[in-house]
Amino acid sequence: MGCRKRAAKHQLLRVTAIEGVCVPDPRGALPGRGAHLHLDPTCLDLAVRRRAFPRAFRLQGTLDTERLREYVEERAGGTPAS
């Protein structure tokens, strides 16, 4: 979503929107539309900047990405980006 690069499905994180919040779905079991993202904070930043999440989920307005950001930064092993 963010960097627009192709990758195998197992290399990407499925993300879904639940009640206005972007939620990581590593098992791919949550209901609803899903979008796929690299486990890279830079890719997440690009997706947020481009407003890709509301388009992917076909929703109006902004979505809270804080929970998703924490998950990606923890899995990427980096420090939180400011």
Rank of each mutant, 00 (worst) to 15 (best):
H38N: 07
F57G: 06
L44A: 07
K9I: 15
G34N: 03
R49D: 13
R50G: 12
K9H: 15
L37Y: 02
D45R: 09
C3Q: 10
R58Q: 14
A35V: 08
S82N: 13
L37I: 14
D45S: 11
R55F: 07
D64K: 08
R49F: 07
L68T: 03
G34E: 06
L37M: 14
G78N: 07
P26C: 09
R75T: 03
R27E: 15
R49E: 15
R49P: 03
R55M: 13
V21C: 00
L46I: 10
Y71V: 09
L13H: 08
H38F: 12
T62E: 11
R50V: 01
H36T: 06
V23L: 01
L44D: 03
V21A: 00
G77L: 08
V23I: 12
L59C: 06
F53L: 02
T42Q: 06
K5R: 15
G78A: 14
L44H: 10
E74S: 09
R55H: 13
R33I: 09
V48D: 12
A7K: 02
M1I: 05
L39R: 11
T79A: 13
V21T: 07
E70H: 10
R69W: 01
V72L: 03
P54C: 12
F57Q: 08
G32W: 03
T16Q: 10
Y71I: 01
H38P: 10
D40T: 00
P24Q: 03
Q60G: 08
E66L: 02
A17Y: 00
H38R: 10
A17E: 03
M1Q: 08
K9Y: 13
E70V: 12
R75Q: 15
H38E: 04
Q11A: 10
G77I: 09
P31M: 03
E19L: 11
L13D: 08
R51C: 14
D25I: 14
T65F: 00
G34I: 11
G61K: 02
R51L: 10
A29T: 15
G78T: 14
G28K: 05
